Structures are given as structure tokens and as C-alpha cells.
Computed example of a mutant assay.
Amino acid sequence: MIANHTDEIRQGLSAHRALTILQLLDGPLRGGTNERLLTALFEMIQLRTSRAELRSILDFLESEGAISTTVVEGLTVIVLKYHGHEIATGLVSIEGIEKPKPDASYLE
């Protein structure tokens, strides 16, 4: 049964990861981080992802104007933009990014 919904599951996880990145940036990461730290945080909260998938989500968020990325000495630096704050807090809804729930724990 689950095999019939693999694409839906993958899309749902990707949308959840995208929101998580924005909420982490909007909350405890205070607007910026790097790809290595983000990968480590995903592992800590049991939201493991491959580097390729994380890169794909970051590219999507950047194309939506939610974040900006810069490569500094081989390390991708990620900065939250105001539009990303709007998405993270539910002021704006974007297809492909999960809508935040009122009890979102990443904002604290």
C-alpha cells in the first residue's frame, strides 16, 4: 500500500523539510547558518536527508525568495530573507512548503 504513495510521501517530506529550514532560520539560528550545521541539526531532530535532497530544497527556497545562499570557502552559507520569515510564520503560503502549525516547536 505505501509503495503506491511513494511520490506523495517524498513530496510531503520535502515540504516538511523546507518549512523546518525556514523555522530554524527564523528561530534558534537567528537568520543564518551553513549547510553542514543544518545537516547536523536535521540528524538531531530525526529528519535525516541526503546532501542532494537538501541542496534541492535550498535551491527551491532560494528560487522562491525565502533564503539566499552564498558559497564561502566551499561551505554554503544560508541566510533567511523577509519572505522566508513570512512563510515560516504562516503569513504567506507557498506550494511545496508545508504550512506551519500553531504549536511548531522549531520557532522556540
Rank of each mutant, 00 (worst) to 15 (best):
residue 65 G to L: 07
residue 68 S to W: 03
residue 53 E to Q: 12
residue 92 V to H: 06
residue 20 T to C: 11
residue 29 L to R: 02
residue 91 L to V: 14
residue 24 L to D: 02
residue 2 I to L: 14
residue 63 S to E: 13
residue 21 I to G: 06
residue 64 E to H: 07
residue 37 L to P: 00
residue 7 D to G: 00
residue 47 L to M: 14
residue 99 K to G: 04
residue 107 L to E: 07
residue 67 I to A: 10
residue 21 I to S: 06
residue 80 L to D: 07
residue 35 E to R: 10
residue 35 E to L: 03
residue 10 R to G: 01
residue 78 I to C: 05
residue 21 I to N: 04
residue 108 E to M: 08
residue 103 D to C: 05
residue 76 T to V: 09
residue 45 I to T: 08
residue 9 I to K: 07
residue 28 P to L: 06
residue 9 I to W: 05
residue 25 L to W: 03
residue 7 D to W: 00
residue 19 L to C: 06
residue 39 T to M: 07
residue 23 Q to T: 06
residue 83 H to V: 12
residue 16 H to D: 13
residue 82 Y to F: 11
residue 25 L to V: 07
residue 25 L to Q: 04
residue 71 V to Q: 13
residue 82 Y to K: 14
residue 52 A to V: 06
residue 35 E to A: 02
residue 74 G to D: 10
residue 96 G to V: 10
residue 78 I to R: 05
residue 4 N to M: 08
residue 53 E to T: 09
residue 8 E to Q: 10
residue 5 H to I: 05
residue 56 S to L: 05
residue 25 L to A: 05
residue 32 G to K: 11
residue 45 I to E: 06
residue 73 E to Y: 06
residue 91 L to R: 15
residue 42 F to M: 14
residue 62 E to H: 05
residue 58 L to S: 09
residue 99 K to N: 13
residue 95 E to R: 15
residue 50 S to P: 00
residue 49 T to L: 04
residue 52 A to F: 02
residue 72 V to Q: 13
residue 38 L to S: 00
residue 80 L to H: 04
residue 96 G to K: 08
residue 3 A to G: 00
residue 78 I to D: 09
residue 98 E to T: 09
residue 102 P to S: 15
residue 49 T to Y: 00
residue 73 E to M: 10
residue 18 A to W: 01
residue 33 T to E: 01
residue 41 L to M: 10
residue 15 A to C: 03
residue 61 L to Y: 03
residue 4 N to H: 09
residue 12 G to D: 06
residue 66 A to G: 11
residue 18 A to P: 02
residue 75 L to Y: 02
residue 75 L to Q: 13
residue 94 I to M: 13
residue 101 K to Q: 12
residue 5 H to N: 12
residue 34 N to C: 04
residue 8 E to A: 11
residue 22 L to N: 06
residue 80 L to P: 06
residue 11 Q to Y: 04
residue 12 G to P: 00
residue 39 T to D: 09
residue 44 M to C: 02
residue 85 H to W: 06
residue 50 S to I: 03
residue 18 A to F: 00
residue 67 I to M: 11
residue 21 I to W: 01
residue 78 I to T: 10
residue 88 A to V: 02
residue 51 R to E: 11
residue 73 E to A: 13
residue 87 I to R: 14
residue 79 V to M: 08
residue 49 T to C: 09
residue 17 R to P: 01
residue 23 Q to W: 04
residue 63 S to N: 13
residue 29 L to T: 02
residue 67 I to C: 12
residue 58 L to A: 04
residue 91 L to M: 14
residue 95 E to K: 14
residue 45 I to P: 01
residue 77 V to R: 13
residue 88 A to L: 07
residue 12 G to A: 08
